[in-house]
């Protein structure tokens, strides 16, 4: 757990690897290639990289056209622009015709940090989850991000890949196998299962370890595919634990917490606490400061676990 690397960095490197394996892979960016790390691919395969300028609608539409032409386009920009600025293009030109476009959005959530609310996507998962035909992936670390890139390329159809700016602990070894639609059990727990995604998975592990010291059995389930969500895993968690906690770097509206709540409400009502950004925009600050202020620390997860057990 000592090594830290951002999922965007893993994405950038994986693209180069993928580019060598599959000629159909092309990459588009909207003037953020240094930040999204598509610059690595651009350097290696200049003729297969298209900078569309600061024009996200054109970015998504052009990616759709490249997919129609038999390519596997990865379109990158910040999550807030990919899903907000170009929502209609993603919906109508990519998802509706079910084109083989991979939307790899970096700088998701509030860990964007100092840039502030205009650049912090708190609602991208809610938006993408509601779009028919869209696969939504939220890798937890660099190993999973790399594999998610390969899995997305292999899958035929639109994929939203949510990536982060901040360096995060590497939790998986090279023997890990990511699969679209399958959650990964990091740990089983009799008292509470924390279902987490993205940067919150490492924090959930930390919370789980601490709580074990208090005599609680707390599981951690990495829900790296938000859609289609691994319903069986959610129900298994509900079966094995007394209560559940979700943890996501996203608004508590419409993301992982909502998806889990929907399943529980219909199939197996259980006490649930959602850790996430309350219904609010972010602000400027360091990622750590923001995680603290908006309730996204291991401490917040621990608090939620203790509280949800009281409901039981």
């Amino acid at each position: 757990m000592s090594k830290k690397i951002s999922t965007r960095e893993a994405y950038g490197r994986a693209l180069v690897e993928l580019g060598h394996q599959d000629e159909r892979v092309v990459v588009l960016d909207a003037d953020l290639s240094k930040s999204t790390k598509t610059e690595y691919f651009a350097r290696e395969f200049p003729h297969r990289f298209f900078n569309m300028g600061i024009a996200e609608q054109s970015l998504m539409g052009t990616a759709a056209g490249l997919a129609l032409g038999g390519k596997i386009p990865f379109a990158s920009t910040f999550a807030v622009f990919a899903t907000g600025r170009a929502f209609d293009q993603v919906r109508n030109s990519i998802a509706y015709p079910r084109l083989n476009v991979k939307i790899a959005a970096t700088h998701a959530g509030i860990t964007v940090g100092e840039d502030g609310a205009s650049h912090q996507s708190v609602e991208d998962l809610a938006l993408m989850r509601a779009v028919p035909n869209m696969i939504v992936l939220v890798p937890a670390d660099a190993v999973e991000a790399r594999q998610a890139v390969f899995a997305a390329a292999k899958y035929e159809g639109p994929v939203y890949l949510r990536l982060g700016r901040m360096n995060v602990p590497v939790i998986y070894g090279d023997d890990y196998r990511f699969e679209i639609g399958r959650a990964h059990w990091l740990k089983k727990g009799r008292d509470v299962t924390i279902i987490a995604c993205g940067v919150m998975v490492a924090l959930a592990l930390e919370a789980s370890r601490d709580l074990e010291g208090e005599g609680l059995s707390v599981g951690v389930l990495n829900m790296s595919t938000l859609k289609p969500i691994d319903k069986e895993a959610v129900l298994a968690a509900a079966q094995e634990s007394k209560a559940l906690v979700t943890a996501e770097e996203h608004s508590i509206i419409g993301g992982l917490g909502s998806a889990v709540a929907e399943i529980l409400a219909e199939e197996n009502p259980k006490p649930l606490k959602r850790v996430g950004i309350p219904d609010t925009f972010g602000e400027s600050g360091s990622p750590d400061e923001l995680m603290l202020k908006y309730g996204l620390t291991a401490g917040d997860i621990k608090k939620a676990v203790r509280e949800v057990l009281l409901q039981k």
Binding site: G61, L66, L68
Partner: peptide, 25 residues
């Protein structure tokens, strides 16, 4: 029908993508 359309303004960008794909191939 080459492309689903209806929400206005989107066809030309799609044509651009097709043209880029054709050029690569």
């Amino acid at each position: 029908v080459e492309m689903s359309t209806g929400s206005l303004g989107q066809g030309l960008a799609v044509a651009n993508g097709l043209a880029l794909a054709a050029r690569l191939d």
